[in-house]
Write a protein that binds this DNA or RNA. Structure first.
Lengths: 223, 223
DNA sequence: TGTACATCAGTGAACGCGCGTTCACTGATGTAC
DNA sequence: TGTACATCAGTGAACGCGCGTTCACTGATGTAC
């Protein structure tokens, strides 16, 4: 941890603004060039500013990438948590998994680059195992687990990581189930994003429905 | 297609040798730097040769990447086809899918970088949709389909793509089943390679067995 | 409401790096008589 | 078996490029009296 300069509020807000602007352009670059195409110099140019200017806002390129990944985790987590709002406490496990699966796929399709940013193996030269990132990952898993276990509290509670730790250490079957659900969703979604289904003229929607049915209909939810 | 120079056999063999050497080093670079780290100049240096020398063997960087991808497809296809040899004709669909799944995971674990090379979305600046590559992909799918449909012929026969086309156009349920099997395998394997299971202290072997059981035991093979 | 001062956003030049690729060339190697 | 020739593998210099990052600096902006 560095010595954080105490910034005056008005300047702090400005700073956050610019950081956001940078991230937005970075996401555009990610979209049409992949993560490796994210370049501070190019972002600066797009922003109408000189290259070194950005070093006021990010210590270096890695910090930018890092914050993109953390943001993406947060985005996906929110997308999954949102459907289970107030008054949805009584829904069945099946219904919740169903909705979770749909939300998951939807988010990935809406933000394919961010999804890839999350689930590609760590980029070379970029240490993805930072504390922040693994925290974000555990938090996401907490939401999925929460959906499966039934309470909607976990969805709201950002302390998902604690639950994950608990479920893991007790070897709770629900935890393993959550991982399996995730594994299948990820398989489907990443093939879909890669264009595999399209290339093979497979009806992705129908296939997805079939997979979701299997996930919820035949007792697997009790495994 | 270019005007291929008629090369004398002895020189042709030498040429193939060097191409292989280049690929081997490229795979090493892939292993510890990702696909983007594959550099002709660096390969040349490693090979004790000047940079431009490699342009005798590959038209450019893309052609090298391309051939790596095609090779990887071939390698995976062979790994999947091999288990079903002579005298295995009578095995059940379940048993064959089981073996297929194990072979798939095994190959991916043995050659994680090549697996990633295959299934990452196309790299920026590199056109992965070349004719060769999609041919290779279809051929691979042909093997998977062959396993599921029962004949061992398809495993040996490189004309898998024709079968895929047929199954697809007739909407054969086996084809959709093959895609679903593939989707799940990919989900599991890519999470495993990404270290997700390890990070969550999940027993990957047990999880995999559970997934394979589901794949073969409860009537899904008849979907 | 006005002024003096400290803070800090942004500049431009510079560094060293490695990349893909081209070009005209030299020298070795296999081939044909 | 020996020699003359054509082929072609490999060289080294050069091109233009964009990257991340540092540095000493200027000028605007918000702040405190």
């Amino acid at each position: 941890m560095e010595a954080e300069p105490r910034r005056t509020p008005i300047r702090e807000r400005f700073r956050e603004q610019v950081r956001d602007d940078v991230k937005i352009i970075a996401l555009e670059q990610l979209a049409d060039g992949g993560a490796q195409a994210i370049s501070l110099n190019a972002i600066a140019k797009e922003l109408g500013v000189s290259g070194p200017a950005l070093y006021r806002y990010f210590a270096n390129r890695d910090e930018l990438l890092n914050s993109l990944v953390v943001d993406a985790y947060g985005g996906l987590r929110d997308a999954l948590a949102r459907p289970v709002g107030a008054g949805e406490r009584g829904t069945s496990v099946s219904a919740r998994i169903r909705r979770l699966a749909r939300a998951y796929r939807l988010w990935a399709r809406e933000q394919p680059h961010r999804y890839e940013l999350l689930f590609r193996p760590p980029l070379p030269g970029y240490d993805a195992h930072s504390t922040q990132i693994s925290e974000a990952g555990r938090s996401l898993m907490g939401v999925v687990l929460g959906e499966i276990e039934g309470g909607s509290e976990a969805s709201v509670n950002p302390l998902g990581s604690a639950e994950v730790l608990h479920a893991r250490s007790t070897g709770a079957p629900n935890f393993r189930l959550a991982v399996r659900v995730w594994s299948r969703l990820h398989g489907f979604v990443s093939l879909e994003l890669g264009g595999a289904f399209h290339a093979m003229s497979v009806d992705a929607d129908a296939l997805f429905d079939a997979e979701v049915d299997v996930l919820t209909d035949n007792g697997e939810t009790r495994a």
